[in-house]
Write a protein that binds this DNA or RNA. Structure first.
Lengths: 336, 336
DNA sequence: TCTCATCCTGAAAGCGCTCTCACGTGCGGC
DNA sequence: GCCGCACGTGAGAGCGCTTTCAGGATGAGA
């Protein structure tokens, strides 16, 4: 099938250049202690043979693999088709790793077996470090790996205590700005559709809503969804049963906000005249809903990039902060 | 930082089990020619030490890496946030590779430098095979790699001739079904918003439209977009200028269809009463547009899975068909 | 009882690379 | 003119694994 199975080795280059393997290795790895004429002779030989170092051999001795794993949780499977969160994370991580010339190994653990594979793979040091785009519950794996000495960084403040550095966005700040906006624009009955309360994003966003409302004399009206569009639609219905006179709703995700808008439409409420709606995420689609959605933007791409950057620092042995929190920002459009 | 740098080696297991390295290796790799008592003794030692084979060392001798690369083109960068195509491909590929216990190395080449990296990386046999989710133009890299003996499979019928096996969906069949539906429901002026004509998806879908219309006495009315929402909106406007009386439009992607719907709305046309709209893709969001979009479903997840399966076959040395074409299906909703 | 095939097992040779040492050179300083 | 010191370079020892090959047991057949 191929004539190229015979890839040139260091040995071959060394012979052609008339030097030793050690010298070729030095040149290839940019060691400064090789005299110029020899250096260029080696370069020429490398060029001529199209020599490319064998990664396996190199890893074997250096103990580095120059690749890092990004682990996506079980739910990614479901979430993938509709929610740009994971794609954006991947994209951000990829950008940063590309720049650092590291490989991205993607692991989706949608089964128990998968979880085990991840564990095996990562503890076996097949990668230099592990990134968790973990959003759900309390995952023991990151801490476990960290304890084994594997560099680890996760997205999202871990529930429970954890010594693993994380990168997250300022959920509370963003939500407070959103609710404040609602208050300032004269709304008095402000409800919320919260996210799942086993996820930090769900918990923190609800906390932000409560915190901001506490400063006013408004009472809180809460329904809980699971970040899907359907759950948003259902929750909205429930909210309106609880308080038919509510005039605003902060929805903890754009997808749920879309669902809520659908419900509001069906029930004949005008947006924002009858009910103002604010989402959270600022997905691309939210610009195209009717009306365009006022929402809290979280920098997901940047989250991915920062995630990768932190891990690269850990791998390099630098100190990293226990937490990096990226700012969120209220984007006012027509829905509130 | 860690006490675990000392991972057990074959040697350690061998000592503990009182056998040679060779025997441990055989047990670990499931060779049948090890007597039962010894086999279980080794198993116990492996268990006790938590032994995990070192991938680099193994690769070095076996010449396999058990990982495969998925290369996403430049445009992925732009496309990622809004278009579930790539995420679904990734997801499908990942599922299949997980099952085969292979690692997925993701490479996004958004720069010329990136392209070179991909080339270096893949020709260096750091992976057992390469998948291209290539959709754009004529990419020489797949063919080049194939010629070097690297197993390669691509998505989408390659433009120009190519010896590389590919997996694609039945664009023409799906489009014809869509246009036929439009004809059968009594539409007489059926326009199309085509995709970019340097992409197979764009070309084939336009061809399908033309082919089906040729059987009727209707004339074709064509505008071209680039698969983005914005371009769909613009193209729709143009189409209406060309023929204000058109009563149906087949749009070559759901995203463009959403754009087209926006335009139709703005211009006061009712859907489907005044203008029927059919899309192509069946993205999740299309179920939630107003009205829900009639569209041609292409099985993207399955495309990814099939892609991976084909590559695994190539790697295993099996014969694979030059092309696998997956069926598409018209999904009738309210917009046509 | 001897031969021979059969079945396991271990010794050892690498896979391609990095990196420590030791070993020349060539030079300045005394 | 000799010593010592940089400075470069090469020899060689592995990194942890697989796999060939040879050889020791074992049991069947004669």
């Amino acid at each position: 099938m191929s004539q190229a199975h015979e890839r040139p080795t260091l040995e071959a280059v060394a012979r052609l250049a008339g030097v030793s393997r050690a010298t070729v290795s030095r040149v290839v790895n940019g060691s400064p202690k090789v005299a110029e004429p020899i250096r260029s002779a080696v370069r020429r030989a490398v060029e001529e043979l199209g020599y490319i170092p064998n990664a396996a051999a190199r890893s074997l001795v250096t103990q580095r693999t120059d690749s890092i794993a990004l682990v996506l949780p079980e739910s990614a499977s479901r979430v993938f088709s509709d929610d740009p969160f994971f794609p954006s994370i991947i994209h951000g991580v990829s950008q940063e790793l590309d720049a650092a010339d590291k490989q991205l190994v993607l692991m989706m653990t949608n089964t128990v077996a998968g979880y085990e594979r991840v564990e095996r793979y990562t503890t076996a040091r097949h990668v230099d470090g592990v990134l968790f785009a973990s959003t759900h519950g309390v995952d023991p794996l990151p801490g476990q790996l960290a304890r084994l000495g594997v560099p680890v960084v996760v997205t999202g403040r871990p529930l429970g205590r954890s010594a693993v550095p994380y990168v997250d966005v300022d959920h509370v700040g963003g939500v407070r700005a959103a609710v404040r906006h609602l208050l300032e624009t004269g709304h008095s009955r402000i409800a919320t559709i919260a996210g799942p309360q086993d996820m930090v994003a769900g918990i923190d966003r609800l906390a932000g809503y409560r915190a901001e409302l506490r400063g006013s004399d408004r009472r809180s009206i809460v329904a809980v969804g699971d970040f899907t569009r359907e759950s948003g639609a259902t929750a909205m219905r429930q909210l309106l049963e609880d308080d038919p006179l509510l005039d605003a709703v902060f929805v903890a995700s754009d997808l749920m906000a879309h669902g809520a808008i659908t419900t509001l439409r069906e029930l004949g409420r005008r947006i924002p005249e009858d009910v103002a709606v604010v989402g959270f995420d600022d997905f691309d689609i939210s610009r195209y809903t009717d009306p365009p959605l006022t929402t809290v933007r979280q920098p997901i791409l940047e989250l991915g990039r920062e995630l990768a950057r932190q891990l690269l620092r850990v791998i390099a042995g630098e100190e990293v902060p226990a937490a990096v929190v990226l700012p969120t920002e209220l984007v006012v459009r027509a829905s509130a």
